[in-house]
Amino acid sequence: MIAVIWVNLRRAMGDRRLLIIGTLVPVVIILITGLLEGSPKEPIGLLHPSPRLLHLAETTDGIKVRVESSRTDLTDDILRGRVVAGIVQLPSQSNSVRADFLIESATTDAVQARTDVVALMDLMAAEGSNTKFTDATLHATQTQAPLSPFWYVAPANLVLFVGIAVLVLSAGMVETRRLGVLQRISAAPVHKRAIVFGQMASMMVTAIAMAIGLIFVGIVLFDVHWGNPMSVFLVVALLGISIAALAVIIGTWARSQEQAIATAVIVAIIAGMLGGCVYQLSTVSSTVKNVGHIVPQAWAMDAFIKLISDHATFADTLPEIGALAVFAVVLSAFAVWYYSRKVFSTT
């Protein structure tokens, strides 16, 4: 069984398609979509702005502002990346302007925003106001980690592309069968169940390894804070098992490699869309959202969103983990049954 796992992994590693679909493409896509969403044209949050400041901000090109109702809201929006920085205009004697400048940390966006704010203050000073301006980094006061602009696209593409890549691996299964390699393996002194479980296990290991790899890519390249490690691991593992089982089912069913690849890509993309990897499920109608939850991807995305943006605890993610476990068990059981039955039908 170890040998079966090993050889499949060895083949998966040598498979350039897998390398490209599984790692390169998602990283590039995360980068592109993440940069588009987290671009510096996010507005600057304003709290208690004077009419003059508001007017200046609105009439200056290249500056977008958003008026906040409380300091808490402002802080929260900065952390969520809805605004890149905040200005809190403080009450003061007439003809003088005092403001706090709030940023999450010294990101390039924030530096850009600060330049913009200084420019605004200079404008007011030029009108004869006495300006005083204090920097305040949220880092010092906040306890929660900041949200990466990639907070949604990173998990979304992880879920989507692990699905595509692993399902595409099913083509390798078809190849093994068509070449007669599977026959030859069956002629060796190994138990049938070792062959079946070896095949399943290698798919699962590939899926989980790829997902964990993308988690690390998210941390290192995109500064994503994934949240509770236990939850993240379980979500990734159970999602990997479900997708691997699905891949075995497709690999068993398909008659040719082309058929396997086409089916895999279609299934993975549809499941990804239903599962909220393309649009957040929180933004779609409740019908679509409910329908979406027939795929494990949806539960994984729910869990990731909870973990990353709401800093959910392990207990908070138990419903999603439970649902994923059900998917993993049911799909694996079916895959084992179907594979054993179909592939060894002549025996």
């Binding site: 170890i2 040998a3 070449l179 190994v190």
Partner: peptide, 18 residues
């Protein structure tokens, strides 16, 4: 009945292990 994407040695290693 061999894996075309692996070398002869890798194929034989696999079947030997079986």
């Amino acid at each position: 009945a061999l894996y075309p994407d692996l070398s002869a040695v890798e194929n034989l290693t696999f079947f030997g292990q079986l």
